[in-house]
C-alpha cells in the first residue's frame, strides 16, 4: 500500500519533472555557463584559447561580463526603471481590476460567466496585432490624439505626441496584463461568504468599513497571485516598449533581446538574464515573507 502509492505519486509527477529538468534546468545551466565566457567575434562564444600562450582564456571562464555590468550605472538604471514600470503597471492593474472583479463576483450567477468571457476575449486575437492596434489608436492622426491635443491647444498648452512615450508603454502594459489581475481577483472574491458582510453590517460596520475590514483583507491572496502574474511578465516585457515606446523607454527585456539578436554578445545577455532572475527571486522571497499573515488565514 505504502510503496505502491509512492510509486503512483512518482509516476504522476515524473513526466512533468522530467520535462522541467530538460527544458528549464538545462538551458538555465547553459546560460549560467555562458555568462562566464567571452563573446565570439561574430556571436556565439569565443574559443577557449584565442592564441597560443594567451593566459586569460586558459580555463575559458571569466567574470568580465559581471564586472562590465556593474562598471556602468546605465545597466542598473535600466533595471531600476524596468522595476518601476512593472511596479506601476501592477498597481494600476490592481486599481482597475478590483472594482471590475468585485462587480463580476457580486453580479448574478448567469451574468458572471459572460463577463469573464468578455475579459478573456482579447486573448482570442494575437498579442502583437493588439499592440499594433494601440499604435494606431495613439498615433498622431488618431481621433484620440486630435481630441486630447484639441483640448490642450484650447487651453493654450503645447500639443503632445502620445505614441513613443512612457505613457504609451504604460497603457500597453496595463492593457495586456489587466486580465491576469482580474481573473485571480475574481476567483478569490467569488468565494467570499456574503453572510460575513451581513454580520459586519449587523455589528455596526458602514459600507466603507465592510469593505476595508472584511472584503479587502480576505482578497489579499488574490491580489498577491494577480500581482505575481502581472509583475513578472511585465518586468521582462520587450515587445511593448519596442513598439509603443521611444528610444528612452527601453526595459531589461529589450536590453537582453538586443544582446542576443542585435549586438550578438551572448555572455553579456546571459549575465543580464541571470541578474534579472536573481532580482525576481529576491522580490518573490520578500513578497512571500510579507504575504505570510495573509496566507495563514486561508
Amino acid at each position: 500500500m505504502q510503496t505502491s502509492s509512492r510509486l503512483v505519486k512518482w509516476l504522476i509527477s515524473g513526466p512533468p519533472l522530467l520535462f522541467l529538468l530538460i527544458f528549464f534546468v538545462t538551458p538555465s545551466l547553459i546560460m549560467i555557463f555562458t555568462s562566464f565566457r567571452l563573446p565570439g567575434e561574430f556571436g556565439g562564444l569565443a574559443p577557449v584559447k584565442l592564441l597560443p600562450g594567451e593566459v586569460a582564456g586558459d580555463s575559458g571562464l571569466t567574470i568580465e561580463t559581471y564586472q562590465f555590468f556593474f562598471s556602468d550605472f546605465i545597466y542598473i538604471e535600466i533595471f531600476l526603471k524596468s522595476f518601476a514600470v512593472a511596479t506601476i503597471t501592477t498597481l494600476i492593474c490592481i486599481a482597475m481590476a478590483y472594482p471590475l472583479a468585485l462587480l463580476i463576483a457580486r453580479s448574478r450567477k448567469k451574468f458572471r460567466n459572460l463577463m469573464i468571457m468578455l475579459v478573456v476575449l482579447p486573448f482570442a486575437s494575437n498579442f502583437l496585432v493588439r499592440i499594433y492596434a494601440w499604435m494606431i489608436i495613439l498615433g498622431p492622426e488618431s481621433g484620440l490624439s486630435h481630441f486630447i491635443n484639441g483640448i490642450l491647444v484650447f487651453f493654450g498648452i503645447a500639443p503632445v505626441t502620445l505614441l513613443f512615450s512612457p505613457f504609451a508603454v504604460l497603457i500597453g502594459m496595463v492593457y495586456v496584463h489587466l486580465p491576469f489581475m482580474i481573473l485571480p481577483l475574481y476567483t478569490n472574491l467569488e468565494k467570499h461568504d456574503p453572510i460575513l458582510l451581513d454580520a459586519a453590517q449587523d455589528l455596526g460596520a458602514n459600507s466603507w468599513q465592510r469593505f476595508w475590514y472584511v472584503t479587502w483583507p480576505q482578497s489579499l491572496p488574490g491580489i498577491f497571485s494577480g500581482s505575481a502574474l502581472v509583475f513578472i511578465p511585465a518586468l521582462g516585457m520587450f515587445a511593448i516598449p519596442d513598439i509603443l515606446g521611444g528610444t528612452g523607454d527601453i526595459m531589461i527585456g529589450n536590453l537582453i533581446k538586443d544582446q542576443f539578436l542585435g549586438t550578438r554578445d551572448w555572455p553579456f545577455g546571459s549575465t543580464l538574464s541571470i541578474m534579472l532572475t536573481l532580482a525576481v527571486l529576491g522580490i518573490a522571497g520578500l513578497f512571500s515573507w510579507f504575504a505570510k499573515p495573509a496566507i495563514r488565514m486561508t
Partner: peptide, 17 residues
C-alpha cells in the same frame, strides 16, 4: 448598522481572517 441589535447567525459568520 444603525440598529442597536446584534445577530448570532446559524453558521456563526465569524470573520475567518
Amino acid at each position: 448598522e444603525k440598529r442597536p441589535f446584534h445577530t448570532v447567525f446559524q453558521s456563526y459568520a465569524l470573520f475567518p481572517h
